[in-house]
Each structure stands twice: as C-alpha cells, then as structure tokens.
C-alpha cells in the first residue's frame, strides 16, 4: 500500500527535539527521527523504549558459562582426566580454580558476540544492506523527522505540512513510498 511520508529537516539537535515535542503535543505520531548522532532526551518524547539488548547479553552470557562448564567437565574430567600438579582431576569442583579463567573468558565471548549479532540484526545492519536514510545529509549535520500518514490517520498531509512549517524547519518534503 502506498503511503505518504513527510520529511521535515532541521539543522540542529535541540531544534529537532523541540519540533518533535511540538508534533507530539499536537497528537502526531513521530514515526522516526534520523540524526547523525544520538540526540539525548528525544527517546521519551517520541516514545522509543529503552532497548533490552542488555538482557540479551545476560542470557548469552549464561549460555556461554554453561557451555564452558559442561565442555570443560566433559573434556578434562570425564573423557580424559589428567593429574596436574597433584591436584584431584576427577572432580570438577575441587579443580575449579584453574577452570575459572576459561569459564570467564568464554562467558564474555558469547555474551559480547551474541549481543552484537542480535544488535546488527535488530537494526537491519549487515554487510550489503542498502541505506534507508531519507537524505544523505542526515549522517552529517542534518536531522530529519519522519511523519508517516499511515501512523497518523487523524491528520491530512496538509495538516502535517502546516504543522511542520510552524517548527524551525530547513527543508520540507513530501513523498510517496511503497
């Protein structure tokens, strides 16, 4: 379904934040904000929730720890126990101090990579993906607020355009996307 989108461009992060507040105050849903760097304090205005990737990392970390413990136990205790420095190698627990380093490293390894990969997938950023920012300048010094008509059934394009004109815009554009 074709959808109308309005791109309002700004040249400053504070103005963008004020504009987003302006739209939200009028009941407009701000679909997305493109910016060259994270604008602090805009997330609560446009209703972006804090990412839960931290929990993802924790889960991956637990997995890594479990895999490391099971793996070490199998390899060095069950399958091929070795007597190292007179220490009992037939028991995981009593030999644990020397397994801690690898357990720790493996936990970090899995947590970091698991989270990073999830992050790339969630952001749809992978090698070869096309850039979807509406204007190339949004990675430099321009800020764009995207208003989708789809998200704002109560407003017409003209409503949105006139609202945008009340803010401190630099450029304004209306587009149809598929």
């Amino acid at each position: 379904m074709a959808d109308k989108v309005i791109y309002a461009m700004y040249d400053d992060d504070d103005t963008t934040k004020d504009a987003a507040q302006h739209f939200v105050d009028k009941g407009v849903h701000v679909s997305e904000v493109y910016s060259p760097f994270p604008i602090h304090g805009i997330d609560p205005i446009i209703g972006v929730e804090q990412s839960r990737l931290g929990i993802v990392a924790f889960m991956f970390g637990l997995t890594g720890l479990a895999v490391a413990m099971i793996g070490i136990r199998y390899m060095n205790i069950i399958d091929w126990p070795m007597n190292i420095g007179g220490k009992p190698n037939f028991d995981f627990f009593h030999n644990m101090p020397s397994f801690v380093p690898v357990m720790f490293e493996f936990t970090v390894l899995i947590a970091a990579h698991g989270m990073a990969f999830t992050y790339l997938l969630r952001n749809k950023t992978l090698p070869g993906m096309p850039a979807r920012n509406p204007d190339p300048r949004t990675t430099d010094d321009r800020f764009v607020i995207e208003l989708r008509l789809e998200d704002n059934h109560n407003f017409s394009v003209d409503d949105l355009l006139s609202m945008a004109k009340q803010t401190n815009i630099v450029e304004l554009e209306e587009k149809t996307i598929k």
Binding site: G85, P97, S98
Partner: peptide, 12 residues
C-alpha cells in the same frame, strides 16, 4: 581475592 587465592592454591 581470586588472584591471591588461585596463585597460592595452584603453585602449592
């Protein structure tokens, strides 16, 4: 704690 303990435990 672990560094001190492990090194002493390990070298015995």
């Amino acid at each position: 704690w672990f560094s001190q303990f492990m090194l002493i435990w390990y070298s015995n």
